[in-house]
Simulated scan of single mutants.
Amino acid sequence: MAKSIISDMDGVIYRGKQLIPGAKTFVQRLLESQTPFLFLTNNAEQTPLDLKLKLASLGIEGLSEDNFITAAMATAMFLKNQNQKQHATAYVVGGGGLINELYNVGFSISESNPDYVVVAKSSTFGYEQLKKAVRLIDQGAKFIGTNPDMIDPVEGGLEPAAGTILAAISAATGKKPYIVGKPNSLMMMLAARKLGAHPEDCVMIGDRMDTDIVGGMEAGMKTVLVLSGVTTPEIMTQFPYKPDFVHDDVGGIDLAAL
């Protein structure tokens, strides 16, 4: 039986609104073989329900909300465990998915002396938000990032991601954020725990050497790089570590061989 599978989504299952070839048959094989699996994504904009509905709209059926863990979920779990205050507050740069997860663990969203400034990818990010985030961090709010990705693969190319916003705030404050999502192995551990599996019995599938592969490797997992997203064979050779397996896309993965 194949090990437990933890798979990235952006650049692995889809690019933007376009399904990647082989993705549907890959998910069907997971379901039919009853292989334990979890989709892990640095996307903090969407909830598990959003992601389930997105995949359904692309033709992938049979999934539940429990098949997903997002950087927003991991960030909320981390802050809940770290925070001892009864009524903790956060200023959020990001979408509804992140705000919803913070609400779920008891946080209030505030611009008045928040405990944390939590930053994710945001399509509405602008100068006023930048100015506010910098001021609050300078006043003592702790700086948290959901994920470090500088770019995201979308249909037709790439677009700026959370890392570009984090870089702007970091440049202005002189402070670096604590980043919860990949490549932090904390997120990999949370995913393995959600599956009820030991990291050594998990395989991490992703399209990024600098987040998916290094995060999985450092958590003690086997790794599979797919070339359907950001990383090319030329980029792969630039890193001092390598994945256990390489495939053009997830359709080429043999679960029994992992």
Rank of each mutant, 00 (worst) to 15 (best):
residue 73 M to C: 13
residue 150 M to Y: 04
residue 199 P to L: 08
residue 104 N to D: 14
residue 107 F to P: 07
residue 184 N to C: 05
residue 118 V to S: 03
residue 200 E to C: 12
residue 75 T to H: 04
residue 75 T to N: 09
residue 106 G to E: 05
residue 58 L to A: 10
residue 196 G to N: 05
residue 181 G to I: 03
residue 65 E to V: 11
residue 183 P to G: 01
residue 162 A to C: 12
residue 51 L to W: 08
residue 173 T to C: 01
residue 190 L to G: 01
residue 42 N to R: 12
residue 227 L to A: 12
residue 23 A to P: 10
residue 163 G to L: 01
residue 95 G to Q: 15
residue 195 L to Q: 06
residue 166 L to R: 03
residue 171 A to F: 10
residue 198 H to R: 11
residue 19 L to M: 12
residue 21 P to A: 13
residue 219 A to S: 11
residue 204 M to W: 04
residue 257 A to G: 06
residue 205 I to A: 00
residue 179 I to S: 01
residue 236 M to Q: 15
residue 58 L to T: 12
residue 200 E to L: 10
residue 135 R to D: 09
residue 228 S to I: 09
residue 221 M to F: 04
residue 175 K to N: 08
residue 47 T to A: 05
residue 141 A to Y: 02
residue 239 F to Q: 12
residue 43 N to Y: 08
residue 19 L to Q: 09
residue 28 Q to F: 13
residue 237 T to W: 02
residue 4 S to H: 11
residue 95 G to M: 14
residue 250 V to A: 07
residue 35 T to I: 11
residue 83 N to T: 15
residue 139 Q to N: 14
residue 208 R to S: 08
residue 105 V to S: 11
residue 203 V to D: 09
residue 43 N to A: 12
residue 36 P to T: 07
residue 99 I to S: 13
residue 118 V to T: 12
residue 240 P to V: 10
residue 104 N to F: 10
residue 32 E to C: 12
residue 164 T to H: 00
residue 130 L to A: 06
residue 253 I to V: 13
residue 112 S to G: 04
residue 28 Q to D: 15
residue 14 Y to A: 00
residue 237 T to Y: 03
residue 177 P to T: 01
residue 144 I to G: 01
residue 171 A to S: 05
residue 139 Q to S: 13
residue 92 V to C: 06
residue 38 L to Y: 14
residue 69 I to K: 08
residue 150 M to T: 06
residue 112 S to K: 15
residue 225 L to G: 05
residue 203 V to W: 07
residue 247 H to W: 09
residue 14 Y to Q: 06
residue 18 Q to F: 05
residue 15 R to V: 15
residue 37 F to S: 12
residue 164 T to S: 13
residue 6 I to Q: 02
residue 10 D to H: 03
residue 23 A to H: 09
residue 216 G to K: 08
residue 61 E to S: 15
residue 178 Y to W: 05
residue 72 A to L: 08
residue 239 F to E: 13
residue 177 P to S: 01
residue 64 S to V: 10
residue 155 E to F: 07
residue 230 V to Y: 09
residue 149 D to T: 01
residue 159 E to Y: 00
residue 185 S to R: 14
residue 2 A to R: 08
residue 126 G to L: 06
residue 26 F to T: 05
residue 194 K to N: 01
residue 200 E to I: 10
residue 178 Y to P: 00
residue 85 K to P: 05
residue 131 K to D: 07
residue 142 K to Q: 09
residue 193 R to Y: 07
residue 65 E to D: 10
residue 127 Y to G: 03
residue 75 T to R: 08
residue 174 G to K: 04
residue 25 T to R: 15
residue 192 A to W: 02
residue 106 G to P: 06
residue 227 L to H: 09
residue 151 I to D: 02
residue 208 R to I: 10
residue 68 F to N: 03
residue 73 M to E: 15
residue 59 G to E: 09
residue 44 A to H: 09
residue 201 D to V: 01
residue 239 F to W: 15
residue 120 A to E: 11
residue 121 K to N: 14
residue 54 K to N: 09
residue 123 S to Y: 11
residue 210 D to P: 02
residue 196 G to L: 03
residue 204 M to V: 06
residue 229 G to W: 07
residue 134 V to E: 05
residue 97 G to C: 10
residue 74 A to C: 14
residue 174 G to P: 02
residue 117 V to I: 03
residue 35 T to P: 12
residue 136 L to E: 02
